[in-house]
Design a binder for these strands. Structure first.
Lengths: 347, 347
DNA sequence: TGATATTATGTTATCGATAACATGTTATCG
DNA sequence: CGATAACATGTTATCGATAACATAATATCA
């Protein structure tokens, strides 16, 4: 692979000229379509090898109106959730031969949203994955905007909406499993430290707590729940507050593992034995939670799978559209699972 | 913004026709270069608005030989380090008007590396950021390959090499600070739990431990160090092993916070008081470390800044090359800082 | 006041590939 | 053995924009 001048790009013309054929023939060799005689094919392949020719994906995208690229809009990449999801997205995209064009969002201003979508479309992405949490009404534009978007858009971790494709963890179900587990352990006075309640996911988890307790005939009043913002710092505050509101609580369902960490610490400081006096269950199953002291019972959500599933679905939509077929947009739920560890286990 | 047929892209020709001008004039209006009379400018702008015209970045990249896109090659996105770095990269790229084309690496097979670089080049990226750790000789191709790469490539978290631009945390310096701090606290028997020693970063941290102890006249023999693989699970094993090798240790420098977590837990289980009997210091300053029990003294590395700096530097290189200037490739070190918390603080 | 600069706009070539169409040659078959 | 199919290759148009060049009208200056 010799590249005489490293600055100048080697084009299909250079190859054609060197091999004494037309550019079309080179194109045929590269794409292995149509007929090319054994002799010329070998000759062209040799030249390609010698010159180190790589076709310009850019030019190809332009003429084919197809880029084999997915736009990915993320938010809060520095947190573990989005990045694990992105990992799944990246893996699957690679497997299916797609590249990712990324944009990070720092706010949900609607101008900014339009800009981001437009900038992805300007680069001919074949589809868009929206990897940003649903907070307040920051997804209110979805239904209207989707009407006029020329490529499929799939939303992750969004409340299911009719006619809009999405993939999300079943947060409600996860919370139900958490509470059910605590009830199975014989706990009856179960508090909750929620995430920020304008987040759809936090709200779902709280709803799981409330409804499961109520249908089992137990109390799930507002006095038994305080609100954090997902951070360990906020978890500490929320726990202290909850202890005052609900002193005889015998179990607490915490909306994520980070907040659970500080609950465990504060409990230890106050001499509250976990799990004997207080069972603690988290959500997410971050790798560290197995090494908390005591190790944390939690609800595991498979964000890797979430990301993979999202790519799989959007690629199917792209292919369907390519063949002018229509696919019915689906809202998919990924099921979480319960991981029992020391913080809820009776000795 | 009315889009009559959502499927068909609106091109500069449509705008030109509707406004009764040439495409060149539309281009001039869009790019605000050269002369356009007030009248036609307004007319064109109105049409652009009405048709909802967005120029194709693809076509522009092709003609300008410039895409305003950076290729980003990552590894191990699911871990917190790479994703925090990526966050910094994304922020800065956005600020400077660049998009990111991502490829995740799952191994360091040299074919795979060539493929990844080629696929980015095929899309005309203006530069490449290599966000993958240096493990063993997995960067041995760097010097040779860089010769023939037509765009700047910058490496993150790589051992500095002459003539190759890079940005990395000064791991050695961080380790020195950690050990110095322990010495300042009066500790004399300081053990180390390292990361996997084929990682450059792990090796640097260990070197900092060894050299600082030695130059202070203390023992830093191999008996006082065990090796983990960054995970909490491995940290537990490494700590147990270290306790046997070095029973009268009074402090331990752990190569990352995840492993520190299980050190703290195991110490607690064995009734070893931290920090009275054993001071513990970590590395990374993950957000949770402030909520460990006891809270963890650690070396903070600013990966967000690392990512930002990398983008800043590569964009400067791109601009220099644009103007045919030459820049001397720099190897930049980001300085870490010490965060003192309970796990090393004497009461 | 003619020469030069500034303003304003259009025409043609180009980026690097593939699509669509055209054409010639060799097999295959009724 | 002429017609049709399969093979092999080339030519021209195209994707959507900007660069480079050209032209014409107005403004400015020595």
């Amino acid at each position: 692979m010799i590249q005489p001048d490293r600055r100048k790009r080697i084009t299909i013309k250079d190859v054609a000229q060197a091999a004494g054929v037309s550019t079309q023939t080179v194109s045929r060799v590269m794409n292995k379509v149509s007929y090319v005689s054994e002799g010329t094919r070998l000759r062209v392949e040799t030249v390609v090898e010698n010159l180190g020719y790589r076709p310009s994906a850019l030019a190809r995208s332009l003429i084919q109106q197809r880029s084999y690229t997915l736009g990915v809009v993320t938010f809060g990449l520095k947190y573990i959730g989005p990045s694990r999801t992105l990992n799944g997205v990246a893996d699957k995209a690679d497997e299916l031969g797609y590249m990712l064009l990324m944009k990070e969002l720092d706010n949900f201003n609607s101008n900014r949203i339009d800009d981001v979508i437009d900038s992805l479309l300007a680069r001919q992405v074949d589809g868009i994955l929206w990897v940003a949490p649903e907070i307040g009404d920051n997804h209110s534009w979805v239904e209207e905007r989707m009407e006029k978007t020329p490529v499929p858009v799939l939303f992750l971790a969004m409340r299911p909406r009719d006619g809009i494709p999405s993939v999300a963890t079943d947060n409600f179900k996860g919370a139900v499993m958490a509470i059910q587990h605590l009830l199975d352990c014989g706990r009856k006075k179960i508090g909750h430290i929620s995430g920020p309640l304008n987040w759809w996911e936090a709200d779902e988890r709280k709803r799981g707590w409330r409804e499961t307790l109520q249908s089992a005939g137990f109390d799930a009043s507002e006095q038994h729940c305080t609100e954090g913002n997902w951070s360990s710092a906020s978890g500490e505050q929320a726990f202290i507050q909850l202890l005052e509101l609900f002193p005889d609580m015998d179990a607490v369902f915490v909306a994520n593992d980070q907040m659970s960490l500080s609950v465990l610490r504060e409990a230890s400081r106050r001499g509250i034995c976990v799990p004997e006096q207080l069972a603690v269950i988290g959500f997410d199953n971050i790798p560290e939670s197995a090494y908390f002291h005591p190790s944390l019972t939690t609800i595991s959500q498979d964000l890797q799978l979430l990301g993979e599933q999202a790519v799989q679905n959007i690629v199917e939509m792209i292919q369907a559209r390519q063949g002018s077929q229509s696919v019915v947009p689906q809202a998919v739920f990924i099921q979480p699972s319960l991981v029992v560890r020391e913080s809820s286990r009776l000795a």
